[in-house]
């Protein structure tokens, strides 16, 4: 399972960076989203995969470490997803505004701030 997830994480990172390097604004934002997912899944994988155990132990399993699943990575990912959702939604609004104001979604056209004109 770790191997599969590791490959997925790698693929997501690769796809994310590839998309960010594209010239189209829409593809950039898809790339940013993929990069976020890659980071979340990475956190999930390295946080340790425990199958069939619960984070809250009661009854006879109480106090036994081997049957304990760490819930913290999931909590962290959940928070990160919520934040990522907010940030990406903002970015989407921004990118839409850019498209409306400047009239292009080609990043190569957006160089007014670098040439100083």
């Amino acid at each position: 399972m770790e191997l599969l997830l590791a490959i997925t994480v790698g693929a997501l990172y690769a796809a994310g960076f590839y998309m960010i390097l594209r010239r189209s604004l829409v593809k950039v934002i898809i790339g940013l989203a993929l990069l976020g997912h890659a980071a979340h899944l990475f956190l999930f994988t390295v946080g340790g995969l425990t199958r069939g155990s619960a984070p809250l132990l009661t009854g006879e399993t109480a106090g036994r470490v081997e049957s304990y699943a760490d819930p913290l990575p999931q909590a962290l990912i959940l928070t990160a997803i919520v934040i990522g959702f907010g940030v990406q939604a903002f970015a989407l609004v921004l990118f839409k505004r850019v498209y409306q104001t400047i009239g292009t979604d080609d990043l190569d056209q957006l160089k007014a701030t670098d040439t100083g004109s």
């Binding site: 940013l32 990069l35 976020g36 980071a39 990475f42 956190l43 940030v87």
Partner: peptide, 16 residues
């Protein structure tokens, strides 16, 4: 945003 994604990955490495 790229910086944030990297930060999150580093957090994962440290936690693991």
């Amino acid at each position: 945003l790229i910086s944030s994604a990297l930060f999150l990955a580093a957090v994962g490495v440290l936690y693991s």
